[in-house]
């Protein structure tokens, strides 16, 4: 994929995802947080599922530290994303410290979807920071406007993200092991959704699929 389409694709995903900041801002303020607290979460925590979980715990009357624990459990998948990204991004010193903040679902998916390392680095930075800027702006808008603004789901933005991830996976499905690994990842994650806290199905499904993939390769060599 040439650089130009990587730019457009990354910004497209950035806009679709960043728009969701409105839902977060609105939910945060209706859950009893003030506008500053909503914005601080988007700026400093910046990982959507963890932010929603924190606010959800507060809204349910839970202690803030319980909210923090839940949020960090969900945020642990970013650790695994970082391990996958490290060999491609090759970041050092302050650059690593800065770019770490945008290690999230979308930037990881966009980067890992590029076969060329230079494209992967471009996709990571553009997706990560376009989501960051828009997510924070839209959090402020949502926090100020509350529920007066419509639900992004009306525009199908939730389906857009699933479609984007599939489009990234698609070119990788040419060989049988990759197909098996992707299907196992999806199946295990789906099965775990009702059983575990949100966020865990992605880590556990991904891990199970990697293990199956390693076993398949060993069989091939036989």
């Amino acid at each position: 994929m040439p650089g130009r389409s990587v730019r457009a694709d990354s910004l497209g995903v950035g806009v679709a995802t960043g728009a969701y900041g409105v839902s977060f801002g609105a939910l945060a303020t209706t859950s009893g947080l003030d506008v500053w607290q909503a914005c601080a979460l988007s700026l400093l925590v910046f990982t959507g599922a963890s932010q929603f979980a924190f606010v959800g715990v507060i809204a349910a009357g839970g202690a803030p530290l319980t909210g923090a624990a839940t949020a960090m459990l969900l945020g642990s998948r970013n650790l695994f994303y970082g391990i996958g990204l490290a060999p491609v991004l090759r970041l050092r010193g302050w650059r690593r410290a800065v770019q770490a903040q945008v290690v999230i679902d979308e930037s990881t998916a966009m980067a890992l979807g590029q076969p060329d390392p230079a494209d992967a680095r471009l996709a990571f930075r553009l997706t990560g920071w376009s989501v960051f800027v828009l997510w924070n702006l839209m959090t402020l808008v949502g926090a100020l406007a509350g529920t007066a603004i419509g639900d992004p789901r009306t525009f199908g933005l939730d389906a857009a993200v699933g479609g984007a991830f599939l489009a990234l996976l698609w070119p990788r499905l040419t060989a049988l092991p990759q197909r098996v690994v992707a299907v196992v990842g999806a199946a295990v994650a789906t099965g775990l959704v009702p059983l575990t806290a949100a966020g865990l199905p992605i880590i556990l499904g991904g891990t199970a699929a990697v293990l199956v993939g390693l076993f398949l390769r060993r069989e091939e060599r036989g």
């Binding site: 890992l112 990234l168 996976l169 990788r172 789906t190 959704v193 991904g206 699929a209 990697v210 390693l214």
Partner: peptide, 13 residues
């Protein structure tokens, strides 16, 4: 193996 595994799981969720 991580990209197809994680993308599959992300899509499903």
């Amino acid at each position: 193996l991580i990209p197809p595994a994680l993308l599959g799981a992300l899509i499903a969720v």
